[in-house]
Design a protein around this nucleic acid. Structure first.
Length: 275
DNA sequence: TATCAGGGCCTAG
DNA sequence: CTAGGCCCTGAT
């Protein structure tokens, strides 16, 4: 079916801005996205017009929330810079990206895996996990597996997990799988907590520190006041903000602005390529 | 081929 | 608070 999306929406940027690791361009301009057990094939037909592989019910229930379509990014961009030239350039550069609302479990594990890895390495590890422990969910002729359940990963042999390029993170993923599958950590229940309590609850898992917890808050629970500070954002703070973290001042939009700045740090436009 | 850094976290000091 | 180790990959 076809859907109309009038706000900022650039599939390339959405897939490339380091928040999801399984989005993939297929032949003919089609992009594949995955979340939970859901698969979406989406293709741009014209400005603001897209062909999607799902029906209306799934679009409304799963994918519109996933792409954060209820938020007006155009309006946010217009007001976000606060007179700061760097932020102004960043939101212009990243126009079209969206902060995805992903499955909390998948977000937790993928960001545990992300530590000390670059994006291609993260994607590789996550794909190996899905292929080895996930359920097939793809369309005919396009084999792909859902992200494994907590139960599947809890039952996995450590050696089999380690074979998915997890390295020292194997123990962390196992701890997450055990805590979640046993109910010791209830990812659904903690959704009612306030930002700080959620942030703390997530750090019960081994291998989850501030940065990973913030990523899960932002990308898995839609807590847009959280702004994860990774090496790229730290560089921006040092280089552009005199060492002072600018994100608290953005309040509920901090996480969105963080994504623009992150994208800009990694994809500087030619006129701003120094540093 | 060798080296380094990569969307950190844990532990010890 | 800071330094080092960690397991593996991708980039140079």
């Amino acid at each position: 079916m076809q859907v109309e999306i009038r706000d900022d929406f650039d599939l390339q940027k959405i897939a490339a801005c380091g928040q999801c690791f399984r989005a993939k361009p297929l032949a003919g301009g089609v992009w594949r996205f995955l979340t939970g057990r859901h698969v979406l094939y989406i293709k741009k037909l014209a400005d603001g017009l897209y062909d999607v592989s799902c029906g209306e019910a799934d679009w409304q229930a799963v994918w519109a929330p996933y792409f954060d379509l209820a938020r007006d990014y155009g309006a946010l961009r217009a007001q976000a810079d606060g007179g700061c030239p760097f932020v102004r350039d960043a939101v212009q550069c990243g126009c079209g990206l969206r902060v995805l609302r992903q499955d909390p479990w998948e977000t937790l594990v993928t960001f545990i895996i992300s530590q000390r890895k670059n994006i291609p390495a993260i994607s590789r590890a996550v794909e190996l996990l899905a292929a080895r422990f996930g359920e097939p969910v793809g369309a005919a002729g396009e084999p792909v597996c859902a992200f494994p359940t907590p139960e599947a990963l809890a039952a996995a042999a450590p050696e089999a997990l380690a074979a998915c390029s997890l390295g020292y993170r194997t123990a962390y993923v196992r701890d997450a799988a055990e805590k979640v599958s046993s109910g010791e950590l209830d990812l659904r229940a903690i959704a009612v907590l306030d930002d700080e309590a959620l942030f703390q609850a997530l750090q019960q898992v081994r291998g989850v520190g501030r940065k990973v917890a913030d990523c899960v808050c932002l990308f898995g629970y839609g807590r847009t006041a959280r702004a994860p500070v990774d090496v790229w954002i730290a560089r921006a703070i040092d280089g552009q903000f005199g060492g002072r973290n600018p994100f608290p001042a953005y309040g509920e939009n901090a996480g969105i602005v963080q994504q623009y700045i992150f994208y800009y740090q990694k994809n500087p436009t030619s006129s701003n390529r120094e540093k």
